[in-house]
Amino acid sequence: MAGTAIGDANHNRGCTVRHGLRRVLAAALLLFMACSAVAADKLVVFTVNHPLAYFAQRIGGDEVDVHFPAPEGIDPAFWMPDVSEIIAYQQADLVLLNGARYAKWVDKVSLPQLKLVNTSTAFQDQYLRGDAGTTHSHGPVGEHSHGGVAFTTWLDFSQAAQQAKAIAEALARKRPELAAEFQRRFALLESDLLALDSEMQSIGQRARGKPLLASHPVYQYLQRRYDLNLRSLMWEPDVVPGRSSWQGLQVLLREHPAQRMLWEAEPVSETAQRLTSLGISTVIFSPCANVPDDGDFLTVMRRNLEALSSILGPDG
């Protein structure tokens, strides 16, 4: 009898536990469904670089679900997504493009045209054409070259503000009921970007005429907007330049005696030491095309400006 009573008690306890588990599971399921419903209401936005993702997140807030799937450490301009990532882009509500032929993969995949937003359309007549390079000809199309357009448009912060405006307008077209909120958040972002623009203008004034070097030709819009006397090399931060590169630099320094060199990322110490021996100090000015290790677009740009400002000194 006693055994039966204990068995019943265990059975009852087991039932209670099972009921409890069921309740927890049901609650979790409801929570998951609720979250899914909320997520389903959100605008799904895919971008081709981090600055656009940052702008979209700032403007869209909790009403958008922003995705930028490029793996870390890769330059998104030369990234090629795989088929599953392309399908994810296809299923988004909006795909934000940088324009200026940025992210060449966009030309090689199928994306729904009606979801694409070229954020730099407003200033596309001001794109900087890069060095056209050597032309070549074959087949029926005749002579042509693959020289490109400078694409780091956001390093001109006034252009970045225009790109942010295009994002705000695109989001408002998709969610007209939230247009006022998007506009309010855009105004805050715009003031941040214009503050950067203003600060960079003053740095540009201090650096006016002073020769500067860039490790890579990615600062064309920065140079144009802020009137920098900048010449670009084709050096990679993680690769020690070869003898011919150093010789090329020596030749360049004769006509462009720069003492400061902008790098996208920290160069290897050997390169930095050799540059120092040539009287050239390095300054990190990250274009922040991919997600930074710490901070966001704005903090990275503030860091860039501080670094550039400090290396120029109080009077340039």
Partner: peptide
């Protein structure tokens, strides 16, 4: 030359 490279018909696309 410095500005142009012309391929022959052998260049396959």
């Amino acid at each position: 030359n410095d500005q142009n490279v012309t391929a022959t018909a052998k260049l396959t696309q």
